[in-house]
Design a protein around this nucleic acid. Sequence first.
DNA 1: TTAAACTTTCAAAAATAAATGAAAGTTTAT
DNA 2: ATAAACTTTCATTTATTTTTGAAAGTTTAA
Lengths: 167, 167
Amino acid sequence: MEFKEAKNKFVQTWGALGSQWGINKTMAQIHALLMISNEPVSMEDIMDELQISRGNTSMNLKALMDWGIVYKEYKAGERREFFTAEKDLDELAVKIAKERSKREIKPALKILKEVSTIEAKDSAEEKHFVDQTSKLYDFVLKADNMLDKMTEFNDNWLGRLVMKIMK
Amino acid sequence: MEFKEAKNKFVQTWGALGSQWGINKTMAQIHALLMISNEPVSMEDIMDELQISRGNTSMNLKALMDWGIVYKEYKAGERREFFTAEKDLDELAVKIAKERSKREIKPALKILKEVSTIEAKDSAEEKHFVDQTSKLYDFVLKADNMLDKMTEFNDNWLGRLVMKIMK
DNA sequence: TTAAACTTTCAAAAATAAATGAAAGTTTAT
DNA sequence: ATAAACTTTCATTTATTTTTGAAAGTTTAA
């Protein structure tokens, strides 16, 4: 396989993976492109490489910057803006985890708490509902706290975690 | 909040959460409904409760059964089939993790291996590509193995894991 | 200040994913 | 074997999400 083919395959795969995990295809593809680029890339280049519109590129770059996994860079003597991706994978995973926790898990926990604390009266059905949603609340809270813990580890938390799990 | 309202809120929230994580809304809603039901539910009841068509219900129940998180049940003297959800949350998490690993992570790893083993020639650009995709391969492999480890823990792996992380 | 060079926004269009429902397929009791 | 009772399939429709691109907005150098 030659370089250009491999590069394309990687960008496509990363894009497809993104959509399966609730991140839009273009956003994932731009991120992929920046990840494997050894120097900052201009918006023009991204549009050209991925064959997407200016608006789409702009919106998704903004989203990636909101997630904190893509940075703007300025080159001396250049009017245009350039972009780079967070390339450290531990850092990347932590940022994605934090963002999804904030956007999705925290609001879900709020709802779970609400519904699990209704007064259960005496029907078996209602008792089961309260029991099950309470358990779910505890589970999700525990999982979310685990994500928080990851962010406290300074370096290579994944490797260290695997070590611990293996005993 | 009364029971009916809480129940509805839970089902809607679970459905929305599902779509954010690449699982279709109805599939997640059916699962939610079965999770909080203290007894097996018929297809008719699911259709009625969620206001969805027979075909949709059937397809998504099948998908849930393929994932191994919903079971068919037969009631004595009843022609109809009933359904129940896996209610043990550890078991549920393990099954979902296994399934997503099989469907998404394993194929992605295959591609990552392919593209990271191209011959890098001498350009800095190609060297960076190979370096970055190799690192990504290692990272994803490690994360996937972590999921595997979870499944080996017999009971309450999440609780134990949190204990370990906390030191 | 101005205008060139660039970026962002957002209503409309296109692409994608999900849902419908009628027809085909199964199963089971008699 | 039959028909009633039920489930599944899949071509079509509907809903949702993403993309486009022209217009509006912004920044910078002179």
